[in-house]
């Protein structure tokens, strides 16, 4: 519950609701971007960025290197399967 899952934003679904589609290890899932949108910035500017997702909400922007390290950590902690399963 503490670690979150990194995902890459691939498409903005609803710019009013701040929802987007992200991809994590090939799995796609809808997430909410409210917590990573800075005022005055269009959500579309975030397409391609990596985010750290906790329970369906992107909580922090991260770089790709950080995303890969976190995915590896989750795999080593035997948590990646658990983290991905509810996304499917």
């Amino acid at each position: 519950m503490c670690l979150g899952v990194p995902g890459q934003i691939i498409e903005i679904l609803d710019p009013q609701l701040n929802t987007a589609l992200i991809a994590v290890s090939g799995v796609r899932r809808q997430v909410n971007l409210t917590c990573v949108i800075t005022e005055g910035v269009q959500p579309s500017a975030l397409v391609g960025s990596w985010v750290l997702v906790h329970v369906g909400f992107a909580m922090s922007l991260i770089d790709e290197d950080e995303a890969n390290k976190t995915l590896q950590l989750l795999a080593e902690l035997d948590e990646l399967k658990d983290a991905l399963q509810p996304l499917q």
Binding site: M1, C2, G4, N32, T34, C35, H54, V55, G56, F57, M59
Partner: peptide, 12 residues
């Protein structure tokens, strides 16, 4: 359930 990590999600 949870600390401040999940609290904002519930609030939103």
């Amino acid at each position: 359930l949870g600390f401040e990590t999940t609290m904002p999600s519930t609030a939103l």
